[in-house]
Design a protein around this nucleic acid. Structure first.
Lengths: 260, 260
DNA sequence: TGTCAATATAGGTAGGATTTATATACAGTC
DNA sequence: GACTGTATATAAATCCTACCTATATTGACA
């Protein structure tokens, strides 16, 4: 929980700190970024309760050892995430969770790091099961040449990577799913890309895929690709349903194992 | 398009401006809020092209007549919306649309105001057709007493308002749909609440509902409510599908009419 | 071709002036 | 006397100016 920036107020002008660059230890994150993450973590973890009122600026700057400007910039960021609202005289209050933008990478990341909530993963998978087949069907109907190219390219990169290169595989897998959503032409679906991204990354962390299942995965991805290429929405939908179904099973297995 | 704050740089410290408060004319929005909206509008409308690099801070402060602090706070907000990214020395660039958080009320509002894109509305309706029936089914399965109460209350407020009070009707309608999504227990679905909110508000603006269709609408809402109360997911799903189906038809009619 | 200094730009700090929503007190009315 | 509207005080966010720091790019030079 302790971050290296506890004494960030130390660099108030003396040349010592600036004389040795690169020694700031872990994280080259800026003051604001560090502060932002500390605040997000405190709110997400519940250390700062939703609905509560934050201390005023003066106290916060002292508590976190940052200037008012940095604090206020971080506050603006939080306000944009729907996590706080400031009203003059009334102070700054933490909004109910319902308003938070969980689709933001920072928020999503903090939630996955701090909360071991199975229901969270379940919702994510549920949403994928709903959205991705629909997106695949729309992609089969709407995709233009450029979209098809990007999907195909991602697929080929998956085949190329195979079991050999886990990093490249996950990158390509991610791009495959994102490209299909993009091809659906529905901007609302696209908003979920970051959530799906997070879901996939979580599953990569959790599951150590046996090389045998790579073959199976490739076959299923190919089914989706072919259906989209052939302009068959229904086939694309069901192929994607099968694909997500397997992903769901793998995740729930991994979560069960992780619990023991 | 012209805002009243074009000469906001006038208050550079001389006491004259402060001597006459309340003369700032229209809009009680703060400097930052006004600036934020101007920037969002410029980006959404395409006046500032995605991928382009903004002028540096000094030029921007001059151009918009605001201080550096306000500018940077607005920038932080934009960064949180995924619209810009700042890197030292490289300047501030506008990110591709794909990264923008359209689910944010400010962004959504600007998009609806500035862009008359039918495809935008179509995507919104498509997403509702996919999400809301699923949410209703989940709500039928998962809703607790509190959730049921809120849905029922919203329904009763709709009945109460009926044709009499258009304002109250739309507020209750909004609450009805939001409460069901809340009851689904899926946080991902809940992220769409703002989008659905926007869709409903747009439809209220567009359609001048004949009082006869209020009766029909109430009946359909009641079907959804009853199915959830009776814990029948499939019925809830299909009742919601019918409801959204009508909404879709009304919207597309209204859009056609608006075009002529 | 690699190294190092100059430079431009975002990032950060300090402190004061201004604005504004709320609360409190007070006067006027039913 | 209870209620309602109006001035004043105040606490908090808001906004501003001025100056300092860190860092990535550029370009000169060895």
């Amino acid at each position: 929980m302790d971050r290296g920036d506890g004494m960030a107020s130390g660099n108030t002008g003396d040349k010592l700190t600036t004389a040795m660059p690169g020694l700031t230890e872990r994280g080259k994150r800026s003051v604001r970024e560090a502060l932002l993450q500390r605040l997000i973590d405190k709110i997400i973890s519940g250390e700062i309760v939703e609905g509560s009122t934050l201390p005023n600026e003066a106290e916060l700057t002292e508590q976190f050892g940052v200037s008012r400007t940095s604090l206020r910039e971080a506050m603006q960021y939080l306000a944009a995430l729907g996590m706080i609202r400031s009203r003059t005289r009334a102070g700054t209050t933490v909004l109910p969770r319902e308003n938070w933008n969980y689709l933001d990478p920072l928020v999503l990341d903090a939630t996955l790091r701090l909360g071991n909530d199975d229901r969270f993963h379940a919702s994510l998978i549920e949403a994928r099961q709903l959205l991705e087949p629909a997106a695949a069907a729309q992609a089969a109907a709407n995709a233009n040449a450029h979209h098809l190219f990007r999907i195909s390219k991602a697929f080929e990169e998956m085949v190329e990577a195979n079991a050999r290169d886990n990093e490249a595989w996950s990158r390509a897998d991610l791009e495959f799913h994102t490209a299909i959503i993009r091809a659906s032409g529905n901007w609302v679906y696209l908003q979920f890309a970051t959530a799906i991204r997070a879901a996939l990354l979580a599953s990569f962390r959790l599951t150590n895929r046996a090389s045998q299942s790579h073959e199976q995965a490739i076959a299923m991805h190919q089914d989706v690709l072919e259906a989209i290429r052939m302009r068959r929405p229904d086939e694309a939908r069901s192929a994607m349903e099968r694909l997500i179904g397997v992903a769901r099973d793998e995740i729930s297995d991994a979560l069960k194992k992780a619990r023991t």
